[in-house]
């Protein structure tokens, strides 16, 4: 027997794992969470950039 003989077993393994139906709400919640994280990251960048600019402008040594 060679490794190729396990090809039908892999197909069976895949078939068994496809029987558990995917929860559409779960997939959508993953996508929504990713969008929330992206928005909050962009927001953080914006705040940090603004603070950096304020500090650069007002806190220059003379």
């Amino acid at each position: 027997m060679n490794l190729s003989n396990l090809k039908p077993a892999w197909r069976q393994y895949r078939l068994v794992n496809s029987m558990q139906s995917v929860d559409q709400a779960e997939v959508l919640s993953i996508l929504d969470r990713a969008e929330e994280i992206a928005v909050s990251t962009a927001h953080s960048y914006l705040i940090n950039a603004a603070m950096f600019m304020v500090l650069t402008i007002f806190c220059q040594g003379g």
Partner: peptide, 13 residues
């Protein structure tokens, strides 16, 4: 979502 559902066997395996 449809593509994930159709190919979930691959992902879960």
């Amino acid at each position: 979502v449809r593509i994930v559902a159709e190919n979930q066997g691959i992902i879960r395996s």
